[in-house]
């Protein structure tokens, strides 16, 4: 090509000169690449949860009306939460189990707050494939261990919501929560 020859003919052959000139081109392209990559950040980050969604990631629940033996379902982060008021018999049954024999070894105390062992708060999401287990409402099948039963693939949870039988790999997840008072819980 005429211009290329021309280029070579007129440019002084100095090694350093060529290297310096290449450096400018490489630097320009690199900086443009950095700019392009930086532009990707907002394009990707916009898909993360927005501020209003994050603001709802914390909810206050009034638990004063839940009688022993009863449970309620509430919604946290668009997922069901089971809040269960355990009876002394259920607590006893949960504590009687040999922890070492469990698939996901945890004691009831691990899964509740100190002095609040009667309040079992878990996500209502089966750890197998994400169905909502039965057992939180009156008259539902609580499975063979008197806790929760997932109808999708037959996972049985005990009164501490630990997996005892069926395909689920782990116990029902306990979310982060704290007691604001004896009757109010803040989840999240």
């Amino acid at each position: 090509m005429a211009t290329v020859e021309h280029h070579e003919a007129t440019a002084p052959a100095g090694e350093d000169g060529l290297r310096r000139r290449d450096f400018i081109n490489i630097a320009a392209v690199s900086v443009a690449g950095v700019g392009g990559a930086a532009l990707l950040y907002p394009l990707v980050n916009q898909m993360n949860p927005s501020a209003d969604v994050l603001a709802l990631a914390q909810i206050d629940v009034d638990i004063s009306s839940i009688q022993p033996g009863q449970a309620i379902k509430t919604i946290w982060r668009k997922q069901p939460i089971f809040i269960r008021h355990l009876t002394p018999q259920e607590i006893e049954a949960a504590n009687a189990v040999d922890v070492g024999s469990l698939r996901d070894p945890q004691t009831l105390a691990d899964r509740t707050k100190p002095d609040k062992a009667q309040w079992l708060i878990t996500l209502g999401v089966c750890t197998h494939l994400g169905c909502v287990p039965l057992g939180a409402s009156e008259g539902e099948n609580r499975g063979e261990y008197g806790g929760y039963f997932c109808p999708c693939h037959g996972s049985h949870y005990d009164t501490a919501a630990r997996i005892r039988k069926g395909p689920a790999p782990t116990n029902l997840e306990v979310p982060e929560y704290e007691f604001m008072s004896d009757t109010a819980v803040r989840i999240g």
Partner: peptide
């Protein structure tokens, strides 16, 4: 307005 206020970098977009 949700985009302007809540979405991450939504105002920029």
């Amino acid at each position: 307005e949700h985009i302007m206020r809540n979405v991450n970098q939504g105002w920029f977009l």
